[in-house]
Structures are given as structure tokens and as C-alpha cells.
Computed example of a mutant assay.
Amino acid sequence: MTESVFQEATSRSRTQAVSLSHLSLELGHLHMEDFEAGPGHLRRHFERVRPWAEAAHATAAATGGKRPRISTCFLIDDYFTRFSAPADVVPMLLEEAGRAGLVVDYLARESGCAVAGKVPVAEAVAGRIVEEPPPGSYGLRPPAAQTGWLANGERGPVARAPQAMKKATAWQPPKETAARRHSVFLDAELWDDDPDGHRTWSCSFLAAVWQLARLGLLRDDGEAVLVPQPHTTDTFPDDWDELPPLLRLNPRADPFTAYRTCSVIPSRFLPVEHAVHVILDQIEADPGALAQTAERSARENVAVPDSVADRISYVFYAEQ
């Protein structure tokens, strides 16, 4: 239920529609060290998540009308470090979630936000970056496609030695484009390339792709990508590559994609998610997918913000 972008909108004859829940609730996004810490660490995580998950359900129900459609998901980082095996990790994860009274409807691999099957999802999303030129800028900053960095304003000028008979350029602070009196300037790294030309996407950029996936705004030539695959056995494979990028664990779950998202995650993710907002504010989402969401939300009388970044929300909890 997602978008990757390769063609002009006018060249596509159709945009595949996806089902939409009211809310996609993320129950966690953990890394190798979290799983290596053992079941007790996961147990404490889900115990912290449970009251916020209950509050999200209660809030959605209080909006009135029909039963709210809420699906849950969990993202495992298998992109930056491969560890253990799904056969060991996933049952432990599901057992500890169940102990806390939580059900994980969908399980995703972070590597699927980079490449899903044959679809280079992250590369396609990067191709949709439309940078906002800061007021008064003169195009001196190289584009993000060239540098791999994206800012929410104007960087401070680089100090240079003055030419003969000229004064040195005075220092100037960076400026946030949409600052409210004072700036909170952020310059986010989207990727880096090694000497052999292999590109590694940043955690922030993959997290932005993950949000677009959950909002149902990713397409590849009009077709949905990161479509949930049903889990039909009682076991899990020994290799991460044998596990689908997005797995539907609960056959009765509401749709994976939703009008809005909420993530309950440790506070250490706050800087990453700040970068996610900066990235999403400068991504031109698939127009066909946006139109479908707008049409369906109007039909259901569900308020959905125009800004994609405003459709996502968080609960950050302290781990100590």
C-alpha cells in the first residue's frame, strides 16, 4: 500500500487504490541492540507502549460515528545490521507483545523501505524531493540530489578568506524557513555513498519512506508497493531475505495503510523524527494517491490535513 515514483502523473493511466484505516498505530521500531537485550527489554518496551496504545484507541473511538479502523504495526531494523534470524526474533517479539495485551497486525522490515522486491523504493522517493528555496537565497547551495543533505532553511555561509582589498564575509546564522520568531534549523543527511558507489540510506530517510508507506502514498508506475503478504504458517524463516518486506500477521486486521499514523517509540528517536518532518515537507507525494485519500476521506467525513507531515504523530517515552 505504497508509492514509489518513476513516471510523470500524466503518463499513467491509473493509480491503484488501497484500503485505508483511520489510524496506523506503530507499536515499536527497534534495533539489533534492543533484541540482543533479551525478552525482558522487549517486555518493558511493550509495557510502556500499552497505555498509549489504549489511549489512541479511545481517542479514535471518541471521534464519533462508526467503529474506528485501527491497525498496528512493528518495524524491525534489518537494514543497517543483520542479526539473529526471524525464526528466533519474531516469536519472541510477538510473545512479549501478547504479554502486554497488544496485537501486532503487521510486521515490516526496514530494508523493505530501501528496496521492496525489484522496486527501489527509497531511490524513487528521493526523486520526488522538491526543495524549498529559503527566502532571499540565490541558488548557491547545491541541490539535495547532489549533496545528500536536506535542510529546513538557509545554512549559514561558509567562511572564506577575503580577496585582496575586500573584507571577509561576516558570520551569519542559519535560518529556519518557517521559523516562529526563533529558528530551529535542521540539516538532515539523506544518504552517503562509499568509494565503490554503494549508497546507504539514512535512518531518517527510511523512516520518512516508512511514513509514506503507512499513509498509502507510495506507488510504482501507479501500482501499490509494500503490499502486505499474508503469513500462512506457524514458523518464520532463518534468513531475513526470506521474510516478505511487509507481513500481515493478523488475518482479521484492519488495513495497513491509514489516513493518519501514530508511533509510540523511545525518546531517542526524536531527532530522527524531526528530520522525517523536514523530509516529508519537501516530498511531492504521488498526486493520484493523494487524490484518492482526499476523495475517500471526504466520503467518510474524516478530516485529513493537506500537509502529509501533519498526518503523522508520535508518543515519545523515556526509557530510564
Rank of each mutant, 00 (worst) to 15 (best):
M1A: 14
V5A: 04
S11C: 02
R12A: 01
R14F: 15
H22Q: 11
L25C: 08
G28M: 01
H29P: 01
E33A: 13
G38A: 03
G40C: 03
L42W: 00
R43K: 12
R50P: 00
P51S: 02
A58F: 11
A60R: 02
G65Y: 14
P68T: 08
C73G: 14
D78G: 03
F80C: 02
T81G: 04
R82N: 10
S84F: 11
V89W: 04
V90R: 08
L94K: 08
A97I: 09
G98L: 05
R99N: 05
G101F: 13
A114Y: 03
A114M: 06
A116R: 02
K118N: 14
V125F: 03
I129K: 07
E132K: 11
P134N: 05
P142M: 03
G148C: 09
A151W: 06
N152T: 07
M165T: 09
T169P: 05
T177D: 08
R181N: 11
R181C: 05
R181W: 13
L186P: 02
L186E: 11
D193L: 14
D196W: 12
D196E: 15
R199S: 01
T200C: 07
L206H: 06
W210S: 06
A213N: 09
D221W: 07
A224R: 08
H231W: 15
T232K: 14
D239I: 10
W240K: 05
N250R: 12
N250M: 10
T257M: 04
A258M: 08
A258G: 04
V264A: 01
F269V: 02
L270F: 15
P271D: 03
V272E: 00
V278R: 03
Q282V: 13
Q292W: 13
E295L: 13
V302S: 05
D306E: 15
Y317L: 00
